[in-house]
Amino acid sequence: MKTYDRGILSVYDLKKPGKRLVYYLMMLVVLIMACSMLYPMLIIFFNGLKLNTEVNSFPPTFLPSEWHFENYRTAWKYIELPLFARNTMFIFAGNMTITVIVLGLASFSLSRMNVPYKKAIGYFFLLTLFIPPTTYIIPNFVNLRDLGLINSFWALWLPAGANAFFLLLLKSFFDGIHMELFESARIDGASELRLFYQIAFPLSVPIFATLAIFVFATAWNDWYWPGLIMSSNDRYPLATAISKYVVNIRRLDINLRFAILSMVTMPPVLVFLLFQKYIIRGLNFGGIKG
C-alpha cells in the first residue's frame, strides 16, 4: 500500500531524467519567484538604513555598508506618524463597529429570522454588487457633500456598513450554523435578541475575525478616497498622508523615504503573519463567492 503523497507527478516520473530536469527547472522558477517577492520587501527596510548617497549609488547595493538606525529617528520626526496612525485606527474602529452592528444584524435577520419579503430585501442589498463603484464615485462624493459629511469621519464610517459582499459573507456563515441550536434555545424560552447575542454572536467570532482583517486592510490601504473626503490634513489616514507627504515629495531624501515606508509596512505584515489562518480562509471564501 502506498501511503506517501503524490501530486500530478509520481515518483516514477521523477526517475526519468528528462522529466526530472523539467521538475528542477520548475523548482528553480518558483525559487526565483520567491526571491523576487522577498527582495523588494527586504530592500524597503535596508534602504531605510543606508546613507542617502548609498541609496543613490549605481548599481544599487542590497545590504547597507553601514547601518544607520538614526534614519528611523529622523524619519519619525519628519511627519506626524502617530497622528496619522491614530486616524487610521480611528477609521478602522468606526468601520468595524458599523460593519458588525449593521451587517451583523441584517445578515442574521435574513438568514435566521422569519421576515416576509425576505427575497426582495435580499435583492435590494445584493444588486449593489452589480454596479461597479467607479461608475458612481463622483455622485457618491457629491452626495456626501450634500449630506454635509465632507471632512468628517462619518463619511467613511457610515458607508462602511453598505457592503453587500460582507453581508453575503456573514449571511452564509449564519446559514451554516445548525438550526437545532436555535430551536432548542427557542424552546428553552430565549428571545430572538438573546439568540443573536448568546448563540449567533459567540459562534461567529471567527467570521468577524476574518471580517476585521478585511476591514483593517481597507483602512490601512485606502489612500485615494479618504484624501478626497478629508479636506483638513490632520484628519488624513496614514496611507493618504504617506502618498501626499512622502511618495510624491521629490525633495525628501530617499533613505528617509524608505525608513518611513518600512515603518508603515511593518504593522500589516505582522498582522498577516500572525493571522494567516483567518486571512487565507477568508480569501478562499471570497474566491468562491466572488
Binding site: 449593521v102 444584524l105 441584517a106 457610515l158 458607508p159
Partner: peptide
C-alpha cells in the same frame, strides 16, 4: 424584530449606495 434588525442596513444601503 426581524425588520428592526434590517432597518439600519436598509437605511445605510439606500443613503450611501442607491
Amino acid at each position: 424584530l426581524g425588520y428592526l434588525f434590517l432597518l439600519p442596513a436598509v437605511v445605510i444601503f439606500f443613503t450611501f449606495l442607491w
